[in-house]
């Protein structure tokens, strides 16, 4: 995490209540940290420092433990994603069918590295491991929409759809 991204932000109170209700509703909080983080990310979209602190306090565990779990799993994000997250599948099937070239084209077109978001917050670029649609390789996902048999030439058109 860069220094700027951990500057204090204010969490939405209503969303916090929603999360607290979820945590309070659990019969046994022991061992539920990952389920709680899934819920928190579902509500907030990502897991900023403040949210991790809140969860630690609520569960009466050290923040280091929460951070340890968040940073261990690739599913959890500590930075907000763009409005249209673009995920290029880098599973083996997609890789051998040219996913790297597709990813490079997205990098070039959006002027982003993997994990970054455009300054206007519109796009973020991610790589993921296998969506299980290997018949369509190489695969790109924009939000929930899946694009199959993607070539570097198609990249411009795909981005255009969301501009």
């Amino acid at each position: 995490m860069s220094a700027s991204s951990i500057s204090d932000i204010k969490l939405d109170q209503e969303k916090l209540h929603q999360l607290d209700d979820f945590i309070d509703g659990m019969s046994n909080q022991k061992g539920e940290l990952i389920s709680i983080l899934h819920k928190a990310q579902e509500i907030f979209g990502y897991l900023p420092k403040e949210l991790q602190q809140h969860i630690a306090k609520k569960l009466n565990i050290p923040v280091s433990k929460v951070y340890g779990v968040v940073s261990f799993y690739s599913f959890f994000n500590m930075e907000p994603k763009g409005e249209h997250p673009i995920s290029v599948c880098m599973g083996t099937a997609c890789y051998v069918r040219g996913a790297e070239k597709v990813l490079n084209e997205f990098k070039k077109q959006l002027n982003l590295e993997v994990g970054e978001t455009t300054p206007d917050g519109k796009f973020s670029l991610l790589s993921l491991r296998c969506v299980g649609a290997c018949g369509l390789a190489p695969v790109v996902m924009v939000g929930e929409k899946v694009y199959g048999h993607v070539t570097p030439e198609m990249v411009k058109e795909i981005i255009k759809e969301y501009k």
Partner: peptide, 25 residues
Amino acid sequence: IRYGAGAFVCGEETALIHSMEGERG
């Protein structure tokens, strides 16, 4: 149902069990 969170090592059974307990896998 318990959700994984994207860690290849969790396919290893002891890692998987730690992950189910809410720990690092």
